[in-house]
């Protein structure tokens, strides 16, 4: 069962887009007809979230509602519908771990267990150090390299217990791990190496 999505208790009293983001908003709004500003709600919410430590306070929702000329409730519905929007503060590393069938069959439970062992958090929780937040999500569309997690904007695939532990270690030391397949696969070829299209410029190991 996924967590109940509730807004943060401690809300900032003010939110305003930065000057740089205001420019971006102009570009985004220009893509849609003037009478349909509400079309820009998703990119604007994303922009607000990126500006605000990866979560959306209600003031940001109200600001977006104002810009998009939508009732606040409509924007809040959107923000609460998508798991990509965080309505309460999250750690510096926001881990979205896929638990949908392909990932689960390929061992997502072990990945979750690793996170639990290393950080002592389960879905919806933030680690004691405040740097890591875990959310179990549905399919993120990288099933060929299951199991996988998304950390902030990057995908880390072909995980198992050890590679997940390594990933966490690197993050804890402030490094930025190389995204992609942890098993070193290129593209989506079979784990045992390419079986077709072998000729050409493939430099797969």
């Amino acid at each position: 069962m996924s967590i109940a999505r509730r807004i943060a208790d401690d809300q900032p009293t003010h939110f305003a887009f930065s000057a740089e983001n205001k420019q971006k908003i102009k570009v985004i709004l220009a893509k849609y007809p003037k009478s349909h500003k509400s079309s820009a709600v998703l990119p604007l919410l994303d922009l607000a979230q990126r500006q605000h430590d990866n979560w959306l306070p209600t003031k940001a929702i109200e600001e977006v509602a104002k810009i998009c000329e939508m009732p606040e409730m409509r924007v809040f519905e959107v923000a609460s519908f998508y798991t990509m929007f965080n309505l309460r503060p999250v750690g510096k590393y926001f881990i979205q771990a896929c638990g949908t069938t392909p990932c689960w069959l390929r061992g997502s439970d072990a990945v979750m267990q690793c996170i639990k062992d290393k950080l002592n958090i389960t879905s919806g929780e933030t680690s004691a150090c405040g740097n890591f937040t875990l959310l179990e999500v549905e399919c993120l569309g990288a099933c060929v390299n299951a199991p996988m997690v998304q950390i902030n904007d990057d995908y880390y695939e072909d995980l198992d217990y050890n590679s997940m532990a390594k990933l966490i270690n690197q993050l804890q030391q402030g490094e930025t791990p190389q995204s992609g397949s942890m098993a070193g696969r290129q593209g989506s070829e079979p784990a045992s190496g390419a079986t077709s299209l072998k000729q050409g410029d493939s430099d797969a190991s």
Binding site: R5, P71, M73, F81
Partner: peptide, 9 residues
């Protein structure tokens, strides 16, 4: 328009 459905599923 103050009523709405939040969350999903």
């Amino acid at each position: 328009p103050e009523l709405g459905a939040i969350g999903r599923g």
